[in-house]
Write a protein that binds this DNA or RNA. Structure first.
Lengths: 122, 122
DNA sequence: CCGAATCCGTGACGATACTG
DNA sequence: CAGTATCGTCACGGATTCGG
């Protein structure tokens, strides 16, 4: 009996809900997708995830680090250099999250069509 | 040449980004997970997704309907009855999103341990 | 010059009251 | 029961400043 079936993200007070809230998030998804390619420094991460602000990137990385999904490597250099990479646990999340990104890219034409239809009929 | 490789969720202005923003969302994930079990009326959806407010449930369902992921069925009854179900397109998203929920439930103990370690060391 | 902290506005979200 | 409307709150997110 190694599996614990009592966790349920649909239950408001279940701890697993707090984990879902963190991973079911646009910035988390994009950051994990980029980190899936390998260890990346802060600046490059910020460039790769277009449109994210420095503050939000820092905060999201902190939360991911706290949840054990990302590790942080600081180098005592000038200018400073900080690199991030997925942990073993984080790597198990890369598949599900990149699947989301691929879904969005694969089905965007259908989604755009649906939006046109909805906006025309309402 | 049926695949369009130009879409990229990491690009700020790419339309696929707008779709990712909608699906990489906690409420979307939970609603789609519940709807994966079959057509559900508003009241039951609100009960199943613990903690969601009526306002947010309505708004999220509207957005999902607009994107062609959910269909809405209104019955002319008193009291009113409205049922929601996944479209064919929405069903293709059920796998990826329920995978997220299952990840959260399967790895929550590791996440909780990581949080304890982080909070102790920082 | 890079990474992170600070300040502050906006938007998401919940609660409540009300209508069909 | 299924929304809509209004309002208050608060976290998210962007611009700016600071530190090294």
């Amino acid at each position: 009996m190694s599996y614990e079936p009592d966790w349920n993200v649909l239950t408001a007070t279940c701890p697993s809900r707090t984990s879902l809230v963190r991973i079911a998030n646009k910035w988390t998804a994009m950051i994990v997708i980029v980190l899936g390619k390998g260890r990346t420094r802060f600046r490059d991460l910020r460039t790769a995830v277009e449109g994210i602000s420095g503050k939000v990137l820092t905060e999201t990385l902190r939360d991911l680090e706290r949840d054990g999904l990302v590790s942080r490597h600081v180098f005592a250099e000038v200018p400073p250099r900080v690199e991030y990479e997925l942990t073993d646990l984080g790597r198990t999340l890369h598949g599900p999250l990149s699947a989301l990104g691929q879904w969005a890219e694969a089905h965007i034409t259908e989604v755009l069509d649906a939006r046109d239809r909805y906006d025309r009929d309402h």
